[in-house]
Each structure stands twice: as C-alpha cells, then as structure tokens.
Amino acid sequence: MIDLTVSNLKKTFGNRTILHAIDLTVSPAHLLAVLGPSGSGKTTLLRLICGFERCDAGTIRIGDEVVARPGLHMAPERRRVGYVAQDGALFPHLSVRENIVFGLSRTERRRGIRANELLDLVGLPQAYADRAPYQLSGGEQQRVALARALAPQPQLVLLDEPFSALDAGLRAETRKAILEALRLAKATAILVTHDQAEALSLSDEVAVLLDGNLAQVATPATLYNKPKNAAVARFLGETNLIPGLIQGRSVDCALGQLALSSELPAGSGEVLIRPEQIRIDPCSEGTSLPATVTAIDYYGHDASISLRMSDLDLIARVSGPLLLRVGQQVGIAIEDPVRAFG
C-alpha cells in the first residue's frame, strides 16, 4: 500500500470557498478519519481526491504519482482509488457477485473467484453472492460496497460517511467488520465522518476540518486530550469551557485555581474541563464547591448531570449507579490538570 499527500488544496463553488489551502498526509496502511460538521467541506475533499471534482489549486499525490495539480486532472477511473459511497451505491441491476467484480477486467470477471474471497474478507457468507442488493440489510450493503471497492486492489480506499445511514445496532457491527477488512487488506484509507466517536474509535489519525480549514491532525488520543484550540475541543465532545486567567502553569477561574497540563503565556483565556473531570460529591462539604443538580440524562452505563453553580452551567459525567435527584445540592471538585487556550 501507498501513501497520500495533499498540499495547498483549494476548492470554490461559485463565490463560496469550500476548502482553503489543505495540507494532509496519510501514511501507508493507515486509516485517517476526516472529521467535521456538515458543510465543513469534508465530502468535497474526498471527491477531489477521488477525482469527481476538479481542484482549483494545489496538488494531490497518490504514492509517487501526482493525480492533480494546476493544469492536470487525472480522470477518476485512472486514479486506482476505492470509493465507498454513503449508502453503498450498489448497482441495483447486478447481483452481489457482479457488484463485487464490477471493477475487474473482463477475463477476471469471468473467473469470478475473487468475489468469494472478498465476501470472506468483509465477513459475509458466500451464499450472498447471488442475491440482489435489495435483499441485503443496509450494513450488509455497505460491506459489499467495501468488497467492491477493494476488489481491484486500489492504492487508496475512500469512505464517504459509510455508516451514517445505518441504525445504531447495525452501525457498531458494520464498523467492526469494515475496520477488520481494511486492516486485513492493509489498505490506506480515508474515512469521512461527522461522528466524533466513530472517528476517534476507528482511525489511526484524525483530521478535524472546520469551515474548510484543517484545524488539527493528530492521533485520536492526542486530539481528545490535547485539542489545539477551543473550537476543536468543542467539536470533539461535551465540554465545559469557562473563562479564566492564565498564569504560566496554572489558571484562575470560577472553579478556583487549577493546574494546567502544559505551560502557557500569561493572559486571559478559556479553560477546558471535560465532563469526566468533574467529580460530584453528594454531600456538599469540605473542599468541594457547592452546586445544584438541574437535570439528569441517564444512559444506563453512565449519566450526564447538568449542574448550576452561581451563574455558571456545567456538565458532568458520572458512571455507575448514583443516587442524585434534580434540585439536590452537591459539592463538586475538579480533577486537574486541565487544558486552557490563550
């Protein structure tokens, strides 16, 4: 497998700029998730790499080959990329087997051996080969779509929100199967998604795309623990962002003086406190700060607690059975170190 390099990529539609100067590298056999809210330009980025759209500036290199630069646009069929569309886009007039071998040469298609191999790879029974696409569930269709994309042994696999149309149960199962297949195929892949959990759990690296700009590219752990700015932090999950005064290795805020995970230049800024960093003490005593429970969203394995502390609204996450009720006075404590943005 092969790497992908995108540099200074720009795209505008009419007078709207969709992508501003994107630089991105995916290492061989890695899965990169492009994460962004809808309208951030992530699908456009993917379509530019596939070659469905022409870029306005910049270069795209797949392996050693430049597939797009000013004055050059290699047709999608010559780029040897695998593409899995949002809903699979299986050809309704062809059987599962015919779909899988679609991208192979005529002689290869006739032999038809690879279909079984690929069904195995994506974890579907071989009996499915002769079914029509509409006889498959959404998740199974997605797996077939991946098998189809992998069949011609592409240099790069691009997945455009492949799980978004699936319901929760099917989604987890399909994700697992697809991830497994990609690993087995040692494929270099890009997954476009707006689902943070999906991006963090599946990929080797996550690129956060906000308003056509790459906000941060990092491993999932780094991204979650060390977001580059407040916008990335906010996008990556439930957060409490409160104003504070930064003083080198600590910060002063409404929750007291907290230790910082890294040293920052002094000045006013925002403090990031993850919900799981707030510890709730049912008896409001001792060193803890007083707060009132305003709402409880109970999820079974954990719960999200909305708190009010004077004029500050906070969200905390607690696990296991917890005997809290709305209106209750509690004490809270913060587990530092925390992050802050100047």
Binding site: P76, E77, R80, G82, Y83, A85, G103, R148
Partner: peptide, 9 residues
C-alpha cells in the same frame, strides 16, 4: 461515482 472510481471511463 462508484463506477468511475472502479476504473470505468
């Protein structure tokens, strides 16, 4: 799109 990515002109 899928067909194009699969090598069809």
């Amino acid at each position: 799109d899928s067909a194009r990515a699969l090598g069809c002109g």
